[in-house]
Amino acid sequence: MNILVVDDSAFMRKIVTDLLERMPNIHVSNTARNGQHALKLLAEALKPDLVLLDVEMPVLNGLETLKEIKRLYDIPVVMLSALSNKDITIEALTLGAADFVEKPINIREIQDEWIQDFYGKIKNIPTQRRRPVRRTERVERTEEPPVLKERSLPSRIQALVIGASTGGPKALLRISKALPASLKVPIFIVQHMPKGFTTSFAQRMNDESAAPVKEAQDGMSIEKCVYLCPGDYHMTLRQGKIVLNQEAKVHGTRPAVDYLFESAAQMYRRELVAVLLTGMGKDGSEGMREIQRLGGYTIAQDKETSVVFGMPRQAILSGVVNEVLSLDDIGAKVKQMVR
């Protein structure tokens, strides 16, 4: 995979390039010092498979550059963002960035955990050039379609839980825009996102949704609104309240979808519906298994509308999904369930 690295800091460009060049099958084909320089390279040179784009730059910033790249090319973009740019980063995700990487606090002493997260995000972003030749995709086409668990949607629904990762912010905004102002059940969301960024994302969702959206806090009494789990915390439900904790990461992430799904299953049992959206990895499958065991209903996003078909695919192959739907169909179904 060829990557174009765009950052106004020469030091940052070198660090990112060195890290990427250590990855197997990854090559930094070019670097750019600002958005204008990046667009010039894209117009003149062989197109990369992915653009790694800094949020804040002189001459032409990350948002304006992203808009131009999405207008002119079908190339995935991953943003490089500092916590101080969290609102702009959320905007970038709504404009079509596939994901973002939070810049390390101390770039002279980068932690192994940051590097692993960085590598995971880069290698899991689907690219146009890689799609036709991926062996796993050829195998998938010959696989027998997985058998979905036959079960009717509960006649009485008490709560809805949603899990998402890569590609999730844009999908969640699309779903939240369709929500009515008055919800008849609470909605709980875990989106894999670092601390601080979830505050901005909850605010963005609240601004664009008719329904009230809150970043969850420990001890909150559950009301009929939308709750987004804060970054760096797991969210569980207990006795009508939200309980946050910082227990060990699950699947390398905190928050983890499984924590929410499993506790919600215990609380709402057969009156619970779970939705698993786009994202890399396998978070959510075990939680869906528990929801199924206790009589709840589970929905997974389909491959065609997922940015990364990792989490939904794992759940489907694990036999814990009742229904596979496109993002638009999920939005319509959620609206129907909560109004």
Results as ranks from 00 to 15, higher is better:
219 G>S: 04
220 M>Y: 11
224 K>I: 05
251 H>D: 10
197 F>D: 13
168 G>Q: 03
246 Q>K: 14
234 H>P: 02
164 A>Q: 10
239 Q>G: 06
188 F>W: 06
231 G>H: 01
219 G>Q: 05
181 A>K: 10
178 A>V: 08
213 V>M: 04
194 P>N: 07
247 E>M: 06
166 T>K: 01
210 A>L: 09
243 V>T: 13
209 S>A: 07
203 Q>G: 11
246 Q>R: 06
175 I>K: 11
213 V>R: 01
250 V>E: 13
162 I>P: 01
240 G>L: 00
199 T>P: 12
189 I>R: 00
213 V>A: 03
238 R>V: 13
167 G>L: 02
225 C>K: 09
253 T>R: 07
170 K>Q: 06
192 H>L: 12
251 H>P: 04
159 A>M: 07
229 C>M: 13
218 D>P: 08
253 T>D: 11
246 Q>A: 09
225 C>A: 08
230 P>H: 10
191 Q>R: 03
245 N>E: 09
237 L>K: 01
223 E>H: 09
190 V>Q: 01
240 G>D: 00
233 Y>M: 05
236 T>Y: 00
253 T>G: 07
238 R>E: 13
204 R>L: 11
169 P>E: 04
202 A>P: 15
234 H>N: 02
230 P>S: 13
204 R>W: 15
227 Y>T: 12
245 N>W: 08
246 Q>C: 07
200 S>D: 15
215 E>C: 14
160 L>D: 06
171 A>Y: 10
218 D>G: 14
225 C>D: 15
214 K>F: 13
189 I>A: 03
166 T>C: 09
179 L>I: 11
164 A>D: 04
233 Y>H: 09
219 G>M: 00
238 R>N: 14
168 G>M: 02
193 M>F: 06
174 R>G: 14
226 V>M: 11
196 G>E: 06
197 F>E: 12
201 F>K: 02
214 K>V: 14
196 G>H: 08
158 Q>C: 12
159 A>N: 12
214 K>A: 14
232 D>V: 04
189 I>F: 02
220 M>I: 01
188 F>C: 07
158 Q>P: 00
168 G>E: 05
244 L>M: 12
173 L>R: 05
170 K>H: 08
222 I>M: 09
196 G>Y: 10
246 Q>L: 04
193 M>Y: 02
166 T>D: 01
209 S>F: 11
221 S>M: 03
217 Q>S: 14
207 D>E: 13
185 V>R: 03
212 P>G: 04
180 P>S: 09
201 F>M: 07
199 T>R: 15
202 A>Y: 08
207 D>H: 12
170 K>F: 13
209 S>N: 03
215 E>K: 02
222 I>L: 06
223 E>S: 09
194 P>C: 03
179 L>S: 04
181 A>C: 05
225 C>F: 10
201 F>R: 00
190 V>D: 00
185 V>S: 05
213 V>K: 00
179 L>V: 15
212 P>W: 03
247 E>R: 10
232 D>I: 00
220 M>Q: 14
223 E>K: 15
168 G>K: 01
189 I>K: 00
